[in-house]
């Protein structure tokens, strides 16, 4: 197994979600940020290449097209670049980064809402999948998240997909740890209800087909 520091940047791009935080340790990310502040292009490149996939997934969770997500990703990196002097060496990098990206996402969402109020949709976008894929007993993660309100979905996504801790999620969402715990608790309660209903519906369907 490769150690994180032995991976090339291209290899790092292939690393999947839950592993991405492990690809670079907190310390390595902090070192890269400090070098980025000192105008080291290699450090900046490494950060962009390594963190873009996770940021892209985070930003694309509320948009309907890939182009929009790409635009948001570019905007997020521009804002990160402009705000790079506000990163304090020694502080965790991911909460700082996601806090900026979160505002880009919120701004993008509000912008789309404004445009949607004024415009009539010119084309029908493909609908998101609303049922689980064939052969799977569990609903798709994305489908499951669609049952939650925005603030709860955001917390669960940051915790379970981006792999941040409660403390880090609180930093990203500019709230307290207690508030994050409460949102996660409510989300789990709701998801448990949804899963129970899905299981009941599945049992009924299989009973009828039998």
């Amino acid at each position: 197994m490769h150690r994180a520091s032995e991976l090339s940047n291209d290899e790092r791009m292939e690393i999947t979600g839950a592993q991405h935080a492990a690809a670079y340790s907190q310390q390595e990310l902090q070192d890269f940020m400090v070098r980025y502040q000192a105008a080291d292009p290699d450090a900046a490149r490494a950060l962009i290449r390594n963190l873009s996939p996770a940021l892209f997934r985070f930003l694309s969770s509320q948009v309907s097209t890939r182009n929009e997500a790409e635009d948001l990703l570019q905007e997020a990196w521009l804002r990160i670049h402009k705000a790079r002097h506000t990163y304090r060496p020694g502080e965790p990098v991911l909460p700082w980064l996601y806090a900026i990206a979160r505002h880009v996402r919120v701004d993008g969402y509000r912008r789309r809402q404004r445009i949607a109020q004024r415009e009539v949709a010119a084309e029908v976008l493909p609908e998101r999948r609303t049922s689980e894929p064939a052969g799977s007993q569990l609903p798709d993660f994305e489908v499951l998240m669609s049952y939650l309100p925005d603030n709860q979905r955001e917390v669960v996504t940051l915790l379970k997909v981006e792999g941040l801790s409660l403390e880090e999620v609180a930093r990203v969402t500019a709230s307290t740890v207690g508030s994050v715990k409460q949102k996660a608790h409510r989300a789990y309660k709701r998801l448990r209800e949804v899963l129970t209903q899905e299981q009941a519906a599945g049992n009924t369907a299989s009973g009828e087909s039998a």
Binding site: T16, G17, A18, P53, F56, R57, L138, V156, K160, V161
Partner: peptide
Amino acid sequence: ALNQGAPLP
């Protein structure tokens, strides 16, 4: 369900 996560695009 929670631990299936979302794939990294």
